[in-house]
Amino acid sequence: MSFSQSHSGSQTHYSSSSGSSSSASKSSGARPVAAAGTTKRTKMRHVPWTEHTLRQLKLVLPGALITYYLGTLNDFWNILQGTGGAWARFAGFGASGLGIVTVSLFLYVLLMPWLTGEEPNYQTWRESGILSSVIPVLTGSIVVGWLLAVSTLGLWSPLGYIKGTIGVSAFYALTFGLLGLIPVPRVRQKTKL
């Protein structure tokens, strides 16, 4: 994604009764405990385009080179064509389907600010109605799809398990690196009438 989030440099402790900060906890080095009604604010820090692109290219270039060198896509395509038998083809289509679900959900999360008109706070995704249901499904599709692809290549391709694991991991890195290059739409503040 084209932004990252970070906490603000100074933490402020608000006390509901006196409104002053707790000097005892600051002087002892301990983190202050927030009082009731305190909200923790996070600042959005936008990463420069060049820095973000270089980060993503660290995934794209090695992923593409390893995928090409091992012939991962060619071996997987042969499995989809039925060279390993009916079970191999079934597993290959299952891994492909989970890959499509993963990319679709990732794009949905990425484009959610544009679709809903609100910029979600990805750090507190458990509190968001939409993100709290999408992110677990996305995580599950990534893990199960990766495992199924590795198993399929390990059983029914000349790569075997070790090269299959490396090849699938490289292809996932390539895919997520390319998806990360998609610019995140920014939401403009709505003016209240």
Rank of each mutant, 00 (worst) to 15 (best):
T53G: 09
R55L: 14
L57E: 12
V60E: 12
P62C: 11
P62E: 11
P62L: 10
A64E: 10
L65V: 13
L65Y: 09
L65P: 05
T67F: 07
Y68M: 07
Y69L: 14
N74C: 00
N74R: 09
D75Y: 09
W77A: 07
N78S: 08
N78I: 00
Q81L: 02
G82K: 05
T83H: 03
T83A: 01
G85V: 05
A86N: 11
W87I: 10
A88D: 03
F90G: 01
A91V: 00
G92W: 03
G92N: 00
G97E: 01
T102H: 05
L105E: 05
P113Y: 05
P113N: 06
L115P: 10
E119T: 13
E127L: 08
S128F: 02
I130C: 01
S133M: 09
V134A: 07
V134P: 05
I135C: 03
L138W: 09
L138K: 01
L138S: 02
T139A: 08
S141V: 02
I142T: 06
V144D: 02
G145P: 06
W146F: 14
L148F: 08
L153A: 02
G154T: 08
G154A: 14
S157H: 12
S157E: 14
S157R: 13
P158I: 09
L159T: 11
G164W: 11
T165V: 12
T165F: 15
T165K: 11
I166C: 10
I166P: 10
A170L: 12
